[in-house]
């Protein structure tokens, strides 16, 4: 009797999870395996990748991207450089801003707390497409941002049309221009000097966009953490006569460390996936300075019909993100 009940439970269990898992298997697990095959094949986008005339080419697609000085390698190197700068700027700025916003709106007796939270969080719920459209307008050469810069006497750049790297521009202003030692050596097909360009003005506008849309989300994580800490610690510090800044630096911040860490790694993972903004805004331009691995993978496959290389880029990106995720798990385990 007990046995039949249990086997009935197993049947019910499988029936309940079946629809969801069949869908996830067909549209997530199976496609990943299929793309893995495409990344080691010479499929050109015609017919089924499983048909007889599609051949196995080993690691050729991967080596085309990673070695050899080909155009594909230079594009991949450029995309990596662009995304590295995007990560280096977005992650620290969004984390610091989110923390600052959370601390500011956390004040218990603050009037209009709800209003401020709503204002800061609203950009996070809107679509990347709508915000990018808005950004294209705000940052056009005669747009609102440059109009505002003009009030303080700054002649703003044509942001989304300006391929100059901000580090190159700053170095150029003090008279440094492409030293031979840096232009001779290459990494992933582009010279060290190119690696040091910094984000272009176009990419800088995307960096500001990312900060605008994610700081509110991460602010909520910090607010939740601040609520968990409670006010007692802060009040104890106040009794001891510590100033507001000292209390924040020596009492609050150490207790927020796990959340800071979570926000940093979520940011690291998220910033490697930037696609929607690039597709809507610049398609990788100007001069490929907003190309990202995610967009390059799409472009190589859907526009250039180099499906093997596109899939290979996607898996390299996947590997980067998995490593960052594992790093997060490992580091959080150390803490607890």
């Amino acid at each position: 009797m007990a046995r039949t009940i249990n086997s009935g439970r197993t049947r019910d269990g499988w029936l309940f999870v079946a629809p969801a898992f069949v869908l996830l298997a067909v549209f997530l697990a199976f496609p990943v395996l299929m793309a893995l095959w495409v990344s080691v094949s010479d499929w050109r986008g015609v017919g089924s990748p499983f048909s007889g005339d599609v051949g196995f080419v080993g690691a050729e697609n991967y080596s085309n991207i990673l070695t050899g000085g080909s155009l594909q390698q230079r594009d991949f190197g450029t995309a990596m450089r662009n995304n590295v700068y995007y990560v280096l700027f977005v992650v620290p700025i969004q984390t610091a801003l989110a923390l600052a916003l959370a601390v500011l709106v956390h004040h218990r007796a603050l009037k209009g707390r709800g209003f401020f939270r709503t204002a800061f969080y609203f950009p996070s719920v809107t679509s990347a497409v709508a915000i990018t459209v808005l950004w294209l307008f705000l940052f056009n050469s005669s747009g609102a941002v440059n109009a505002a810069l003009g009030w303080v006497g700054i002649d703003g750049p044509n942001w989304f049309g300006d391929a100059r790297g901000i580090f190159h521009t700053a170095l150029g202003a003090v008279g440094v221009d492409a030293p031979a030692a840096l232009t001779e050596h290459r990494m992933l097909g582009i010279s060290w000097w190119e690696w040091l360009a910094g984000p272009s003005f176009a990419m800088s506008a995307f960096i500001l966009l990312a900060v605008f849309t994610t700081s509110g989300t991460f602010m909520l994580l910090f607010i939740a953490a601040l609520n968990n800490i409670g006010e007692e610690v802060d009040e104890a510090g106040m009794v001891d006569g510590a100033g507001a800044w000292q209390r924040f630096w020596h009492l609050t911040l150490p207790m927020l460390r796990p959340t800071v860490f979570t926000v940093l790694t979520l940011g690291l993972i998220g910033t490697w996936q930037v696609f929607d903004q690039i597709y809507t805004g610049t398609q990788g331009g100007p001069a490929k300075t907003t190309l990202t691995p995610a967009y390059l993978s799409f472009q190589a496959s859907f526009n250039s019909q180099r499906w093997g290389e596109g899939a290979a880029i996607a898996f390299i990106l996947f590997a980067i993100i998995v490593l960052l995720t594992l790093f997060q798990r490992w580091a959080l385990r150390e803490k607890s």
Partner: peptide
């Protein structure tokens, strides 16, 4: 529901959540 294979199903679910969306475009 305590059914056989539940642990495995859950492990698969966690693995799937880790796959980033942009990697799935081509697949």
């Amino acid at each position: 529901i305590p059914f056989r294979g539940r642990g495995l199903m859950f492990a698969i679910l966690v693995a799937i959540m880790a796959v980033p969306n942009v990697v799935l475009l081509i697949p």
